[in-house]
């Protein structure tokens, strides 16, 4: 992490190069990743969307070097991470992965201890680890009382925050979150997503947010990648991706409700701009079109 400054600015943070991964499911082989390539630039916020079984979680585990592809590789800062000599343990400190239901991995006596676990594994001194832990717990929005509580006494939403803090404390350059809002109530979802997008602005961290909800991703992502049956189908800005509403529906994915309304209006002959992602803009746009007619 020290040599961030003198790294070549033109090299993307991470390049996935023709990843192919297969696993044995029953009697035959299933291709979970089928020739997937993409780039992630520094500070980018990417939404990774796909139906259950589309290969998005498998991809996440590749990004964290937990699975090794059958062919293809990932370059991190220009170096292939599946090279024999590459230090993958260290690499996992640079790319944090928040699993689905991350609260199931909490184990220590106190929240504070649990958050210290990652940095300590990275070989950081005890003092430095505690400092980082303190900072991160604050950042994920847990109150002071939580610090020395057992993680198992927290509420569901707090547990999730504590677990995310455990990954953030390793100060990753790229953070991959696998369905971080699953099982949270709408308010909790909103807060968590807001917190995550705040991380990007503050620390220029690159973020990959995996979800099957377009609504969640549409608001925050700079770019959306859509996976279907192990293949990367779309990789573009949200507005561009949502213009393919029909194809997305065929994959079992829904475009955000607002976009869907605008597309339907257009179909009915109203001359509206369909590249709209939030309710307020949509209302303005509809008023504009109706105003023209009146």
């Amino acid at each position: 992490m020290m040599d961030n400054e003198n790294k070549d600015k033109r090299i993307p943070l991470l390049i996935a190069d023709h990843l192919i991964y297969e696993y044995e499911g029953g009697a035959d082989r299933v291709r979970a990743l089928d020739d997937v390539s993409f780039k992630i630039e520094k500070g980018e916020f990417i939404g990774l969307i796909g139906h259950t079984g589309s290969g998005k979680s498998t991809l996440a585990e590749h990004l964290n070097a937990l699975l090794t592809p059958k062919s293809g590789t990932i370059y991190f800062n220009g170096e292939s991470i599946f090279e024999k000599k590459y230090d993958r343990k260290r690499y996992r400190g640079h790319v944090g992965l928040v699993f689905q239901y991350p609260e199931h991995q909490l184990f220590a006596d106190t929240v504070f201890e649990d958050v210290c676990y990652g940095p300590l594994n990275n070989g950081v001194s005890r003092k430095q680890a505690e400092l980082t832990a303190y900072e991160t717990i604050k950042k994920v929005g847990l109150s002071d009382e939580c610090f020395y509580q057992s993680p198992f006494d927290l509420s569901g939403g707090q547990k999730r925050r504590a677990a995310i803090a455990g990954v953030l404390a390793m100060k990753p350059e790229l953070l991959v979150l696998d369905e971080p809002t699953a099982g949270l109530d709408p308010a909790g979802r909103e807060e968590l997503l807001h917190m995550i997008s705040g991380l990007k602005d503050e620390k220029s961290m690159s973020i990959v947010l995996i979800s099957h909800s377009m609504e969640d991703v549409a608001r925050y992502a700079d770019r959306i990648m859509v996976m279907d049956k192990g293949k990367k189908v779309f990789d573009a800005e949200p507005i561009e991706v949502f213009s393919h509403a029909k194809e997305l529906e065929e994959m079992g994915l829904a475009v955000p409700a607002v976009t869907s309304v605008m597309l339907k209006l257009k179909e009915k002959g109203f001359d509206v701009n369909t590249g709209i992602l939030n309710v307020k803009d949509a209302a303005d746009e509809i008023m504009r079109v109706l105003g023209d007619k009146a």
Binding site: K89, F99, H104, Q105, G118, N121, G166
Partner: peptide
């Protein structure tokens, strides 16, 4: 397996 992976990604050895 899941928990081992999760802890591996937090630098466990």
């Amino acid at each position: 397996n899941k928990i081992m992976k999760a802890q591996l990604s937090r630098g466990a050895d």
